[in-house]
Amino acid sequence: MSFVPKPKYQFGAVLFFLLLHVGVVAVWWTRPTRSLLAWLAASYSIRMFGVTAGYHRYFGHRSYKLGRFGQFVMAFLAQSSAQKGVLWWAAHHRLHHRESDRERDVHSPTRRGFWWAHVGWVISNDFDKYDPRLVSEFLRFPEILWLDRHHWVPTVTFGAIVALIGGWPAFVWGYVVATVVLYHCTFAINSLAHLWGMRRFDTPDESRNNFWLALLTFGEGWHNNHHYSPGSCRQGERWWELDITYLVLKALSWFGIVQSLRPFRRVLPVADLANESAKVAI
């Protein structure tokens, strides 16, 4: 039977998302300065790294190793982006790889259109829950389960710290504006990166490499590379494919903070790609 999600939206579930977008108009009363733009850039960069290195490459694919404390810190940093719990995020992402651009893909623009893939599925109540079996290796960590259940704690904490240090103007630019920009750059990987760009590898989906998205998302825009070798920590295959997330993780590995970064694997025949995506390389 075909999997056709029915979009269900409850006002309470999308209220925070809507308030953040409405809150962007506050920039009219807090005109940008060098200091405020620095708040925006720093907040965006720190939390984009949390999304790419935390949600995606660690919890989604286990493409490198962390100690238990480092794992908790990475989960907290990822959730400061206000994109729900790390286990929720990872479980749905693993399902996306298993069913990429097929009927059961939770956010395929080729199946449900751009709006659904970009943001509709995120704020829909259809996917509030996830199958814990998809992230079973993390279920033995009570601190991760607690963070996942209370996914709002890190982002509220982050916003409060920004407000306490920088005041109202810094909160507007360093939290509200930065979070909205972070949302749409992250969501563009689900939508635009399956519609716009080039395909180096003949993967069984519509994933594409996009230079501009790669810049904005610290390497995630090399999306066709990623779907070809999903378990790889490095997503920029060629020397010129800038992958900021990988470079930062590589630097952290020199100090023993992270270990066992999985290299890019350019070895799979096309016939095996669907099976590799199904395994999600965990």
Rank of each mutant, 00 (worst) to 15 (best):
M1S: 14
S2E: 15
K6G: 13
P7F: 08
F17L: 09
F17T: 11
H21F: 02
V24E: 12
S35A: 15
A38T: 14
A41G: 08
A42W: 08
I46S: 09
G50I: 01
T52E: 13
G54T: 05
H56F: 01
R62C: 11
R62K: 13
Y64H: 07
L66I: 08
F69I: 15
Q71I: 09
S80K: 04
S81D: 08
A91Y: 03
S100C: 12
D101M: 06
V106M: 09
T110Q: 14
G113Y: 11
N125V: 11
D131T: 02
E137A: 07
F138P: 07
P142D: 04
I144S: 04
H150L: 12
W168A: 12
F171S: 00
V177A: 01
A178S: 05
V180M: 05
V180C: 01
Y183L: 11
Y183Q: 07
T186F: 03
S191C: 08
L192N: 06
W196E: 05
G197I: 00
R199W: 09
R200H: 13
F201W: 07
D202T: 10
D205G: 00
N210C: 01
N210G: 01
F211K: 14
W212I: 11
A214K: 00
L215P: 10
W222Q: 06
P230H: 04
R234C: 10
Q235Y: 10
Q235C: 12
G236F: 04
E237L: 14
R238G: 11
W239F: 14
I244L: 14
Y246G: 03
L252I: 07
Q259S: 09
E276G: 03
